[in-house]
Design a protein around this nucleic acid. Structure first.
Lengths: 238, 238
DNA sequence: GAGTGGTCTAGACCACGCA
DNA sequence: GCGTGGTCTAGACCACTCT
């Protein structure tokens, strides 16, 4: 996967450092090079370097300590789904598999969709897909994605088995995720969810509804997610 | 409550704007003054103003749009507990009450505490308290707080009925919350939790364990929280 | 005292929205 | 074309940690 040359410099540095952390070049508890060293190494000024480090803090990879340095965080033991980075990148090196239950298809939006929709989005219909995510062979969460059917040529014929949705959007459509909001509930699994997640109906599952904003104005997409937290916790930083 | 004059300027501006939003000076969908206007009004430069706005984005009060401006977010309908701002400030103007179930008391740390503790923290013992939070008279979540018993004179004799923990730490001990991490599960309510939250045992509740870091190095505190999400969702931005 | 991150200034150029 | 936020430079001073 090729990076865009138009990627901002702070983002480029973020990706480099993140990769080094995930691959173990810097280990838990290590200090990253100081901000001034990073400036010199990559030919950037301090605000730019600091911007990159702030993103790493936000996504939970490091913490900073005045007078000391930037300290590498332990890789989370749970699923880092609460931050912006997307599901795939939040897992470190673990074995995440995706099974497509419903391939992307165009259908009308649900009448009572869980987020309010602008009229032009509602009219153009919805790209719908269902995916099951497995870690180490065990089903962990079930994800329904809803995208506005606007300017996404050939989207329904793409494969998502081995590719994250966020990457596909970035590489093929220059759509970057910039933020979003989410709501969480603890609910009882119904028959269908229980079957997907290999649980008993009535057992508690975590339900997440998210609206995900992008750099394309007016283009947000949505995800409804059911997670079996009996073995893996969800994880987040703040 | 008096603000410290030592508060950074970006933080001062953040508090001013946040207050205006929560009090309705700027309403949902309104544009904040542009960054350049804010610079002029408050005598700051753009990076400082941008820092303040970035914090508002992080805490879900505004979103920014290139070429347009900073747009005020709807005040969340759920409980904004997933961000750093602390429970109290995340609720807007709603009627949040706190009932102290166990007043702060010093006891040893649990042998199998949910986060690893440095030895000197473990030795000095733990300040323990239990609180029940009610919204509009209904119990919403039950919160156990664990603080290291280090340099917190007279802490156990303070009252927390009408005062947030974060404010107390800041005003009386100059301790600022800088970040933290959290884990989430959906679990079945046990007898005690169900009684506190006025639910049936076995109903799903959301369980949150958090480690909260501060500007005092080595000083983190902890919270274990059970939330009834049957009527109110938890809410967060990313 | 030397080095670190935290805050802040004073500019610059760009891409995007809106009219 | 103008104003907006997004990115970036090149400095400065401070508080803190470590030795």
């Amino acid at each position: 996967m090729k990076e865009h040359t138009s990627m901002p410099q702070y983002r480029r540095l973020y990706e480099i450092l993140r990769k080094h952390i995930v691959e173990g070049v810097y280990k838990e508890g290590d200090l990253l090079p100081s901000e001034n060293e990073l400036c010199a190494t990559y030919g950037l000024t301090r605000p730019t370097v600091r911007h990159a480090l702030d993103e790493l803090v936000k996504d939970g990879f490091i913490k900073k300590q005045k007078g000391k340095g930037s300290i590498v965080h332990p890789l989370p033991k749970g699923i880092g789904i609460l931050s912006i980075a997307g599901t795939t990148s939040a897992l470190g090196n673990r074995d995440l598999k995706t099974r497509i239950l419903v391939k992307p298809e165009i259908r009308p939006w649900d009448e009572s969709f869980f987020f309010p929709l602008p009229e032009h989005v509602r009219e153009s219909g919805c790209i719908y897909m269902e995916r099951l995510r497995l870690i180490d062979g065990k089903p962990l969460f079930f994800d329904i994605t809803y995208l506005p059917n606007i300017n996404l040529p050939r989207f329904t014929s793409r494969s998502f088995e081995n590719r994250s949705l966020f990457d596909t959007l970035r590489s093929n459509y220059q759509i970057e995720v910039t933020g979003g909001e989410q709501r969480l509930w603890a609910i009882e699994a119904d028959e269908q969810i229980a079957a997907f997640l290999q649980m008993q109906p009535g057992e508690p599952v975590l339900h997440l509804e998210r609206k995900i904003d992008t750099n394309r104005v007016g283009f947000s997409f949505f995800s409804s997610l059911y997670c079996n937290t009996s073995e893996q916790a969800l994880f987040g930083v703040f």
